Amino acid sequence: MSALKEQLTTAMKDAMRAKDKARLGVVRMALSAIKQIEVDERIELDDERSLAVLDKLIKQRKDSATQYRDAGRDDLADIEEAEIQVLQTFLPAPLSEAEVDALIDDAIAQTGAAGMQDMGKVMGVLKPQLQGRADIGAASGKVKKRLTA
């Protein structure tokens, strides 16, 4: 079992003991999403892939919270944001802007990227390093800027 899945399982047990229904629901949902992929693909997910699942769940909740706020349903948006807070506790420490920029510079140098045609190579190197630690969409925009400049 991967370290992240173990951490989630321990958090689930702790939430059960503490009778924290909100946290328990979020942790169970995360474990369920991971388990669903494992069953569908008949594999055991590693930490990197599990982080990708958590990232996806956080992104879904952010989108939902935005839609709820736009519809004037602040009560539902607050629930989504509370779920985001719980999920973020399982992510590694976020990278600073300077660290992300340094990783982008390293990836461009490592791949020898010269233009936009090399964007896929650079992102292929960057994505595992940024997973769960930085916004990949924002990093992609920065890479695009550097490769077109």
Rank of each mutant, 00 (worst) to 15 (best):
D46P: 00
A18Y: 10
R61G: 01
S64P: 08
T66C: 11
Y68I: 02
D78F: 14
A18G: 10
D75M: 06
A102I: 06
E44S: 07
R42L: 13
T66Q: 15
K59E: 15
E48C: 04
A82P: 09
D47K: 00
I43M: 08
A65I: 03
L91V: 01
T66S: 15
I104L: 08
D55A: 08
E38C: 00
L24Q: 08
G115H: 10
E44G: 02
A102Y: 09
E81G: 07
L31Q: 02
E41F: 03
E99Q: 14
A22G: 09
Q110Y: 14
A33T: 02
A22V: 12
L4I: 03
D46K: 02
L103T: 04
V100D: 05
E6F: 08
T66A: 14
I84R: 00
D105R: 15
D78V: 12
G115V: 05
R73W: 10
E41C: 01
L8H: 08
L51G: 00
D118Q: 13
D46I: 00
S64M: 14
L76C: 08
M12K: 14
E48L: 14
L54T: 00
A11H: 09
I79H: 11
K35P: 03
L54K: 01
A82G: 13
A113K: 05
D55F: 06
L4R: 02
